[in-house]
Simulated assay, not measured.
Amino acid sequence: MGTRTVLEGAEISRALTRISHEIIEANKGVAGLVLVGIPTRGSLLAQRIAAIISRIEGEDVPVGSLDVTMYRDDLAQHPTRAPHPTDMPVSGIDGATVVLVDDVLYSGRTVRAALDALNDHGRPRAVRLAALIDRGHRELPVRADYIGKNLPSAKHERISVRLTELDGVDDVTISDAEGRG
């Protein structure tokens, strides 16, 4: 099969705009809303969603970044994971509706680690999940509230999200390489 592109820049932009509208509607505005990205690309997507929401609502939404490295249950299999700095909004997350943002939802283990890490930073009123790509193959009972694209895939396939801020291009590809969690 090789590698094929499943989303290009304009499609990613439309998906993030749709997710932003869905978040605003579900939250009935932006009051009490905090976006928290899971590094690295989830953090970039959270910033993009916050910018879109700001344009729509005329109000800024606090954005944070949450390192889940030390909360993962697969550190023994992947000990070389480099930690990322956690940067939570000054306003905190106590009583807020937190939307966790990640690029690819796969096994659910990263989200479980994020929920554990989030508990160390306060007690949100509610936690929601936004993912650009939901590829299936859950190992834990985790479901995204906001999804850019459902992309059924085989376990051996690899979904790669590239974003301009890091990679110089916006796209999502699928290839025959080994998948990641």
Score class of each variant (00 low, 15 high):
L45Q: 05
G42V: 09
R41Q: 06
H78M: 14
L100Y: 03
Q77S: 13
A114Y: 01
L115H: 09
G58C: 04
A76C: 11
T80S: 13
D67V: 13
R48M: 05
L66W: 02
G108F: 01
D74G: 07
G108M: 08
H84Y: 10
D87Y: 01
A117S: 02
A76D: 12
R72S: 06
T80C: 06
E59V: 06
A76S: 14
L45K: 03
T86V: 04
P85H: 14
M70A: 11
L45T: 01
D87N: 15
E59G: 02
H84V: 07
R41D: 07
G92L: 08
L45M: 08
S91H: 00
E57R: 11
T40N: 13
V68L: 10
T80Q: 13
Y71R: 07
L66F: 00
V68Q: 00
V68Y: 01
V90R: 12
H84G: 12
A51M: 12
Q47D: 11
A114C: 05
T97S: 15
A76R: 13
Y106M: 15
Y71F: 14
H84W: 09
E59Y: 05
D120R: 10
D120C: 09
Q77P: 00
A46G: 11
S65M: 04
A96H: 13
V63L: 06
D60H: 14
M70G: 11
R72E: 10
D103R: 08
R72I: 12
R81D: 13
G95Y: 11
S107F: 12
E57L: 04
R81H: 15
D73F: 00
R41M: 06
L75T: 12
L100T: 09
R72C: 10
Y71W: 13
S91I: 15
P79H: 12
D74K: 10
D60I: 01
P89L: 07
L118D: 06
D103V: 03
